[in-house]
Design a protein around this nucleic acid. Structure first.
Lengths: 99, 99
DNA sequence: CGTGTAAGGAATTCTGACACG
DNA sequence: CGTGTAAGGAATTCTGACACG
């Protein structure tokens, strides 16, 4: 279930300059989306570090912004997704327990 | 045959400071192995950028160095591998052509 | 040969703020 | 609200060199 490649996708090692090149977003935009809690980089000695997964998420955010979706709405969608995943986890645990 | 994860593994986006943390090698060592043609980072505005594949390769190099293998020998092994891969590619082409 | 280090410069990143709308 | 920009500082990276062995 867990491949070695998974670590590549989720390991936060990319600096903001490269993320900006990869996504086409300005550093200002990327930092702002963090402020709005849409993205959660790690920090290595103060500097933000992103994963490939973060880069993909930023591209999704960019698409939604172009469609006119506000950061607030994107944030809500994220919250909802997290809520659904937790519920799913609960249900899995439930059915696992009951056969 | 080609997964999306492949691009994660080979995309050169990691700066030398992070590679140093990831491998435990000093920046001096990493640059020296490049000088000896054991590793081939990209450059983004002058700064070296490495892939996860490069990071793994550096760990292999580190292991060999600890065993006392010289950079020259490691370089020879690499040359040999490349030679073998080219031969294999030739053979694949050969048998594909002849059924 | 392989690695450490000090040196000086150039490029990167960070934060808080002002601007505009 | 979302993004641009100038500002000043701190941390990063680069190269060529000297050191040691």
């Amino acid at each position: 279930m867990s491949h070695k490649e998974d670590s590549y996708k989720f390991k936060k090692v990319i600096s903001i300059g490269i993320v900006s090149e990869l996504t086409g977003l300005s550093q200002r935009q990327i930092r702002y989306y963090e402020e709005r809690k849409l993205i959660f980089p790690d920090r290595s000695k103060g500097a933000r570090k992103y994963s490939f997964d973060d880069v993909e998420r930023l591209m999704d955010i960019a698409d939604k912004r172009e469609e006119g979706v506000t950061t607030r709405e994107i944030r809500k969608e994220l919250t909802k997704e997290v809520r659904e995943k937790m519920l799913k986890g609960q249900m899995n645990a439930h059915f696992r327990l009951r056969g």
